[in-house]
């Protein structure tokens, strides 16, 4: 309200601009806006572009040629590099990609279902301890995941499960932020009347959830899935501390290991560059493919 009145008073000093989107002011600010966004587009995309260009060069050419443009034989070199990447050290890179896909893909899928069920129950049912559970979950959001990595390692070593895929997979399933988002979204998008109607029709609670409510919550579910997927794909401390066996590494840890050996094995540099490019493509593809969903679900966490 106060904002609106404040703006109306400024109108009097501003009468010369009868049309607020007058052409002169508009061209100036349009130009400024496009300039800002243009400069930052370069900032955001140049490193990725450099990665793409460098992936198409042989070891010596990465430094010797124009860094931001291709060489005449870029295309065959790119495929040669790809071939080397997937055959080096018995094709361990392909293994890493599969591991990441398993940890992040399956982990996020299961994690989303689990978080959605809990958030939904917290939003749509009244039961004792509901607020207490929600508050515990919320403090979970504020606990840094990396603070848990070391104690998790100690616990898993008690049960002799370090250096197994379970050590990375199981802890990744828990997403307190997912529960938080699911609760907010379920409260806003699943009408209680609908649940009561389903009850009158004799549908069980679980069936109603999986057939009706999840559809209404779809944008939030995709958002939870994506962000958990990224969180697991990017997770570094947990696999770093848990895994010794290269065959279990996710792709980030594998590339990290290669990168720290470059000074001894220089030919790894090209593999690290190509591998970095290959490892970010699935994420970019996932984000582009699901854009429609997450762009509407993203705001749910903060909108009042």
């Amino acid at each position: 309200m106060s904002a609106a009145t404040a703006v109306t008073t400024t109108k009097k000093t501003n009468t010369s601009a009868g049309n607020p989107r007058g052409p002169r002011q508009s061209i100036m600010s349009r130009g400024a806006a496009m300039l800002i966004m243009g400069v930052f587009t370069l900032y955001f995309l140049t490193p990725i572009w450099w990665l793409l260009v460098s992936s198409s060069k042989s070891g010596g050419d990465v430094t010797g040629t124009a860094p931001l443009w291709f060489t005449p034989d870029s295309i065959p070199t790119f495929f040669a590099n790809l071939g080397n990447l997937f055959t080096y050290s018995d094709g361990v890179f392909g293994r890493w990609l599969l591991n990441s896909a398993l940890y992040a893909g399956l982990g996020a899928l299961l994690g989303t279902v689990i978080a959605a069920m809990c958030g939904y129950a917290l939003a749509k049912y009244e039961f004792r301890g509901r607020e207490a559970i929600f508050n515990v979950v919320l403090s979970g959001v504020l606990v840094p995941a990396t603070a848990l990595a070391l104690p998790l390692f100690l616990i898993f070593s008690q049960v002799k499960l370090t250096n197994t895929l379970w050590a990375v997979f199981l802890p990744s399933l828990v997403s307190p932020f997912g529960v938080y988002l699911a609760r907010i979204y379920a409260a806003a998008s699943v009408p209680t009347e609908l649940l009561e109607a389903a009850r009158l029709d004799g549908s069980s609670e679980a069936r109603t959830f999986f057939t009706v409510s999840t559809r209404l919550m779809a944008p939030a579910l995709v958002t939870i899935f994506l962000f958990q997927f990224v969180a697991i794909w990017n997770n570094f401390f947990l696999p770093l501390i848990m895994l010794r066996d290269q065959a279990l590494f996710p792709v980030t840890l594998g590339l990290y290991a290669w990168n720290s050996q470059i000074s001894q094995i220089p030919e790894l540099r090209v593999l690290v560059i190509v591998g970095a490019l290959v490892s970010i493509l699935p994420l970019i593809a996932t984000f582009l493919g699901l854009q429609r969903f997450w762009s509407s679900g993203l705001g749910a966490g903060s909108v009042k």
């Binding site: 995309l45 490193p47 990017n234 570094f236 980030t252 970095a276 984000f287």
Partner: peptide, 22 residues
């Protein structure tokens, strides 16, 4: 612009550090 600015988020911290390291 929305996509271009968001794209780096798809780059894991390790990979981003390797890229910028170079």
């Amino acid at each position: 612009f929305r996509l271009a600015f968001f794209a780096p988020y798809a780059v894991p911290g390790v990979i981003a550090a390797i890229m910028w390291g170079f």
